[in-house]
């Protein structure tokens, strides 16, 4: 996890420097603001991973000499198939179409989104199908 976090932190530092140079030199705000938040978007997960890397130490995938047995564990924690991504996607589709063809399309759109949200959560609680 250490290297993962370092990549993000270095990117953040680079964007911060670039932002400082650009903003002071150009005095153009749009780009300055976007670069500033790009820096933030790297620091946020970067610092989080850094914090985690200190808490959990090296994982088998960080250990160059790990054997496959160390990775043993439980997989298949998620449902092997699910209709709800499709339901949610079609809901979003109708919501977007409502922006073009009239707000009545929000009825099927939001209906599908809510159904998918409730169904998906219930399904997630049940866990993988075996």
């Amino acid at each position: 996890m250490r290297i993962e976090s370092k990549i993000l932190l270095w990117l953040g530092i680079f964007f911060g420097l670039m932002c400082a140079v650009y903003w002071t030199w150009s005095l153009e705000n749009a780009g300055g603001v976007m670069m500033f938040f790009a820096m933030g978007l790297c620091f946020l997960p970067g610092l989080y991973y850094f914090w985690w890397s200190r808490r959990m130490g090296y994982r088998p995938e960080d250990d160059p000499n790990a054997t496959q047995e160390t990775g043993a564990g439980y997989i298949d924690a998620f449902p092997g198939s699910s209709i709800f991504p499709f339901t949610l996607g079609s809901g979003a589709f109708f919501v977007v179409l409502s922006m073009v063809f009239g707000s009545w399309l929000l009825i099927p759109g939001l209906g599908l989104v809510i159904w998918a949200a409730l169904g998906g959560i219930a399904e997630g609680r049940r866990g993988g199908d075996k």
Partner: peptide
């Protein structure tokens, strides 16, 4: 990542 599959 699988065990042993370091980032590099």
């Amino acid at each position: 990542r699988a065990p042993g599959l370091t980032l590099f």
